[in-house]
Computed example of a mutant assay.
Amino acid sequence: MPSYRSIFVAVGLVFLSAGAASADCLSYGIDFQNGGQYFINKALAQNFTSVSQFEGCSAGYSDVLLVDPTGEEYVCTDIPVTPDDVSQLSTCPIFKSQMFSGEWKLLLLGNNGPKNASFAYERDLFLTVGEQITSTITSTVTWNVTTTPIITTTLPSTVTVVNTAQNNQTITSPSATARRTITPPAVTSTLTKFFTRTRQSFTKSLKVVTETKTASCTIPPRPKYPDPKATFIPTKPKFAAYTSLIAVQAQGADTPTDPVEVRRRMREARLRRGMEVPERLLEHQLGKRSPDSPTVFVNADTVVNTTITYTAPARTTTEYELTTLTSTTTLPPKTVFSGRQTITVTAPTPTKTRTALAYTTITKIATLYKTFTFTTTITPTASVSACKHRGGHFPGH
C-alpha cells in the first residue's frame, strides 16, 4: 500500500504538469491589479467587488477568494472565463465599511473546462481603508488694471498788479480858468484761466455662468503581465481540489510562510515595480489609481477677486505757478486855477488786472468685463453601475 507521502507527491506531479499547461489560460486584474496600492472608502456600505479579464481559456468559471491581512477568507461570486478580454465582475461578502488597511489577496481558481488543466492565480494588494476627505476649491478671478501716474511740473508766471494812489497836493496856477481833476477809484478785473484734469477710474463687471457636464468613466488599462501563480493555500473546503497545485507553485516560488517576511517581500516587489511611494505622495498615487477616491473636490459657492495693477509710463502735465508783482503809481497833484470859472475833469478810471487759475476734474470710467464659468458634474446612477462592471470609476466615487 503506497504511503501518504507518495500519494501527495503523485498528486503534486499531476498538478505540476497541469500548471504548466494552464499557462495558456491567463487572468488579468482591471480595477485591482497585482502589486498595486488602493484606497477604500470605509464610509460606503457597499460590497467589495473586483473586475477581471481572461485570455486563452477554454470554458467554465473561475472561483474568486478574497483574503484579508489576518488570513480570513471571503468566498466571492464566481465569474466566467470566456470570452477573451471581457471584463467580469465578482462581488465579495464584505462591505467596504468592514475592511481595514493592510495586505490583501485575491485568488482566482478554476478548472478551465473538464478537459483542460486547472489554474490558480493570485493578486497581492495593499489597501488603505479610511474616510474620504472633502476639499473645497475656491476659484479666483484676476483683474488686470493699468494705471498711469501723473507728474506735475510748474511753469512760473508773473502777474503784475498796478495800484494808483491819490495825490492830495493842490497846485494853484494863476489863470482865469480854474480846472480840477478827479480820479475815480480803481476798478479791479479778474482774468480766470481754466484747466481740465482727467482722472481714470475702473469698475468691474463679473458674470458668473454655471454649466453642467456628465462625468466620464475612467477605466485602467489592462496590465502588461497576467496575474502570478497563487502561493496562498486556502482553507475553505470548496477549494480543497486546488491545495496540491498551489502547494507545488508555492514550493517553486520559494515563498516564505512567516507573515513578516511575506510583507517584506511584497514591499520589495512594489519597490521594484515603482509602486512604493512616500507618505506625502501616497494620496496622489491612490487618487490616480483607486476605484474609491481618497479626496473629493468641490467648488466654493463664491469667486475670489484678485486685482493685479500694472504701472504705465508716467504722463507729465504743466501747471502755472503764479507770482504777483504789485507796483504803485501816484497821480500828479491837483491843479487849481483861480479865475472866473472852475472846470472839473474826471480822469479815466484806473484798472487792476488779477489772474486766477481754475481746475476742472473729469473722471473717466472704464468698465472691465469678465465671465467665470462654474462647472457642475453629474454622475447618473446607471452610468456608475455600468462603469463599475467594466472595472472603472468616476472621479469622487
Rank of each mutant, 00 (worst) to 15 (best):
F372A: 15
L109G: 03
S293H: 08
I133V: 14
N167D: 12
T70M: 13
E103D: 09
I79K: 07
A21Q: 08
H397C: 15
T381N: 11
Y61L: 12
L331D: 13
F194C: 10
M1H: 07
N305E: 15
K370L: 15
E279L: 14
T136D: 14
S90G: 01
F119W: 03
V162Y: 03
A120G: 04
K388H: 00
T210H: 03
Y28E: 07
T335P: 01
R180L: 15
I219V: 15
A382P: 02
A45Q: 12
A241H: 09
L65Q: 10
V304Q: 14
L206S: 07
Y359G: 04
I365C: 06
T375K: 07
K288F: 13
R179G: 12
P226N: 04
S385T: 07
I362D: 10
T346P: 00
T70F: 08
P234G: 04
L127F: 13
P156L: 06
S157H: 13
T177N: 13
T317S: 12
A45D: 11
A314P: 10
T214N: 00
R340Y: 12
P174M: 04
V345E: 13
S216D: 00
P149K: 06
A356D: 11
K364T: 06
R273M: 11
L125V: 01
S27P: 03
S139L: 11
T147R: 12
T77P: 05
T192F: 06
D85E: 10
V248R: 02
S338L: 09
T318I: 03
T353P: 00
I378K: 13
F394V: 03
Q132R: 10
Y38K: 00
N111E: 11
V303H: 07
Y74S: 10
S383A: 15
G60I: 05
T134K: 13
